[in-house]
Design a binder for these strands. Structure first.
Lengths: 136, 136
DNA sequence: GCCGATTTTGACAACCATTTTCATTTACCG
DNA sequence: CGGTAAATGAAAATGGTTGTCAAAATCGGC
């Protein structure tokens, strides 16, 4: 019964950006789902293994997952505040990485490319905060 | 006394590739150095904060550090077998990331780019292994 | 030189995401 | 229905990393 796995997948689908396992688990429990943390981890791993979700590591070492629209190779532009993510393609970068690798005699060349920034609405919110400092 | 920090830095300098904190600690102890794990972590963090060493995360979430030749922004071509690392620059990639970010209204755009592969000697060694299978 | 203040150190405990264990439940199949 | 294999999840273990705190080293000032 991959019912649980589908449920996990569904949560990711309805999310704007990358989510952590703990995060997904908390939401599912909050919604009343009967599922264990272990199962969430297993589901996410299975989904990642079969390429149905993308995964990356945050700066503090947490694994985060996202159901991406395209199954093709692509990269991400991630808002470091709200996590909203845009899928981007970069054929030039793919070629560049491949070239660099072979120039140095490396084989089986892969690469990781992620772009981080603050999205328009979040940087607006930050500016707002600066204008009305709450305290301290 | 930043003696300890210098000692940690020295270990990284004489290393070919990225090393983990635990790894550095183990080597220093093996060489008879009197140092605590906590101090190694603090030294590595301090060095990373001041930009004197580069850091990245392995697939299994471990932080690894490297004393790089150049203090300028650059990326790495890392052998996934032996860890040997080549520093590479990619002005085109820098511009690409910046462009993608601003196209989508993102500010404070940063990026991570790492290239992984198997270096010439390691792929030779692997081929060798295949020719003379030890057992199993 | 000597004493108190400040910083650095490191043994140990705490943290926390992730994994493993293992007993229970559930699905499948004749 | 039995019986077997797979899935589940509560609880414990793991392991890298960080926090705590007292002892030790360093630095002034006298």
């Amino acid at each position: 019964m991959s019912n649980r796995r589908d449920a996990v997948h569904a949560v990711l689908r309805q999310s704007e950006g990358f989510r952590s396992a703990q995060d997904v688990y908390a939401e599912m429990r909050a919604e009343g789902a009967k599922i264990g943390l272990t199962t969430v981890y297993r589901a996410l791993q299975a989904l990642a293994d079969t390429g149905r979700v993308d995964t990356l590591r945050t700066d503090d070492g947490e694994s985060v997952y996202r159901a991406c629209a395209s199954g093709d190779h692509h990269h991400h532009l991630v808002c470091r505040v709200c996590g909203r993510t845009v899928e981007v393609a970069g054929p030039a970068v793919e070629r560049w990485a491949e070239t660099i690798g072979s120039e140095h005699g490396f084989t089986d060349v892969t690469h990781t490319v992620e772009i981080f920034g603050t999205c328009a609405s979040c940087s607006a919110a930050t500016a707002e905060q600066a204008r009305t400092p709450s305290r301290a």
